[in-house]
Design a protein around this nucleic acid. Structure first.
Lengths: 337, 337
DNA sequence: CTGTTAGCGCATTCAT
DNA sequence: ATGAATGCGCTAACAG
């Protein structure tokens, strides 16, 4: 062992000195690129290993003109807690982390506040990431459309807008809404309500599909309640609504969290689910089946969505002009309907 | 407007040329550091704004010898699904993202597989982050202890081990276990069980506290069931256990997810909660109060935990030799007990 | 108050 | 097969 106390190796220059070769040789040995005699390469790799030396990723990236990271942005803005407390988002985040690390990329999680109109441009120009995945367009459709026109490596999870917008991946929310409608009608429900925030395009599409799936005779009577999305707030909203005397026999909730809040609020008012009232959610988060009673819901395949997002992004990074993807939703009948 | 088509500005050199000043002047103007006449600064900032120019964060960080990112690592390894689906982790992640972005840092989310013994050293030496937050030590206590000896900017969420380990933040799991025990005893429960995975130090401490909080007469009779942590798997485990004829009257679950699975499984077997069986969880995830019946649980304050983690980390980055923090748990009595 | 210069750690031409 | 030299975009002495 010529392994004397040389102090920590800070850069390939140190290692080169130690090995008696040039920095470029070390670089070639450690990256595996370029021609190099097998002996030298092995010797240098062994030396690096012994000293616990690793290439500095930041410097490497600067030199290569990349960052090695993909940003995941959730511009949900409003309530701070909201963006990350929703089990759907979180599940999505986990699958994205898996898919990205599989490709050797880091996941840069940023909470951005869409206060100024150029929040996205500013983020992109700062050059922190090689691509951007946006989860939930919220009310930022205009910004996304504008940026998409000149920035390719970006994909958005959400409801497909009119053509020409950003590359999107999302469930077919309208079809999901129709599924919910047909199911409630089959169950003989007649007095219906929709709980959700119509400012969110996904939810608006679910609502539109819900109406479209109903016979014309019922369509006019559907109550539309603008509900918040957090467990606490949606529970409060639902309780107030029942307290005001509203007694529908079928409710379609924009998300499973809202649906679970409705089940809880119904119990507070001695409404039996599903005997007196059918409730159906959207998402099929893992906890939906654990709820009591287990939640009937429209499932969107989050894992498939994450994979599509990442695939699409890397296709676009690779120069391909890949377009949007839509995922078919599926009705999962459990015991709240 | 002297704003001709000059093409996109790639670097401060371009901007300097455009403004007729030197690069250092531009740098000073844009960073706000160093002395500069108010006029020049304003002029350059306006110019940068007009052209949509932003400093390249990667280059800035390389020069400053930092990365501007904090890594959050979850070495939970075992089941892939686990890290993603557990609402506790996800909630923690959200609060961490908030706390870090408040300090101007990015959150680098990495799923590391602790397969080799040097996974952590390798990650650190790659220089991708200025500090590391580990969520859940799992079975990596030895690795963490070794690394902590020579790497300061690291904090770990979890159960405090014997002295000398890494800087830790965590709930007082043993105290939490005692709380649960006392509560069940007060409710008159005598035939008790604990559901959890004893390989996870946090859970082992909860179990130990649970036993410690029981009168000696009951301590010997506590069943210990090694349960998985995901909704699906824990539900299956619980159902099988009830199916085998086990009929305790009080169960302490290692996490809320496990507790909710137990409630669901109990219903499958026509056990009434809480009349026949008291169930108490741990965490107080947001959905705990929405469960039917709302879940009695031992609350750990996740937001406070996240803030402590970040505080502690930056203290250590700043050279302070700040030590561990323990958070007092709180019994939240709802309707499953 | 502003400009010149020397790197941060690395990858890559171009020589040899 | 290897070495020398250049620069990715930026900041911070050091001069003036």
């Amino acid at each position: 062992m010529d392994d004397q106390e040389t102090g920590p190796l800070k850069s390939i220059a140190d290692l080169a000195r130690l090995a008696g070769v040039s920095v470029s040789t070390v670089s070639r040995a450690l990256t595996g690129k370029g021609a190099l005699s097998k002996g030298t390469r092995g010797r240098i790799q062994a030396l690096a290993d012994r000293h616990g030396f690793r290439l500095n990723v930041a410097a490497q990236n600067l030199r290569l003109g990349r960052t090695g990271a993909i940003a995941v942005l959730m511009p949900l803005g409003l309530a701070r807690g909201l963006q990350l407390s929703d089990p759907f988002l979180v599940t999505m985040l986990g699958f994205l982390a898996d898919a990205l690390t599989d490709r050797g990329y880091d996941l840069l999680l940023s909470r951005v506040s869409p206060d100024r109109d150029d929040w996205l441009d500013a983020f992109i120009r700062a050059g922190r990431a090689d691509g951007v995945i946006i989860i939930g367009q919220a009310d930022q459709g205009a910004v996304l459309g504008r940026v998409a026109a000149h920035y390719r490596p970006m994909v958005v999870w959400g409801e497909q807008g009119a053509g020409g917008g950003p590359a999107m991946v999302g469930a077919d929310n309208e079809a999901g809404g129709r599924l919910a409608a047909q199911h409630l009608v089959e169950r003989g429900r007649r007095s219906l309500a929709f709980f959700g925030d119509m400012d969110v395009p996904e939810f608006a599409a679910r609502h539109a599909g819900f109406l479209a799936g109903l016979p014309a005779s019922l369509r006019g009577g559907v109550a539309l309640i603008c509900s918040p999305l957090t467990p606490e707030a949606s529970h409060a909203k639902a309780r107030d609504w029942f307290a005001a005397g509203n007694r529908p026999d079928g409710i379609f909730a924009a998300s499973d969290v809202v649906a679970m809040s409705l089940v809880a609020a119904a119990a507070d008012h001695d409404l039996r689910v599903p005997q007196d009232l059918s409730i159906i959610g959207f998402d099929d988060i893992p906890l939906a089946r654990l709820a009591r009673p287990p939640l009937t819901t429209v499932r969107q395949d989050i894992e498939a969505g994450a994979h599509h997002l990442v695939d699409l992004l890397f296709r676009r990074i690779g120069g391909e002009d890949a377009g949007s993807v839509q995922i078919a939703p599926e009705l999962i009948v459990r015991e709240t309907s």
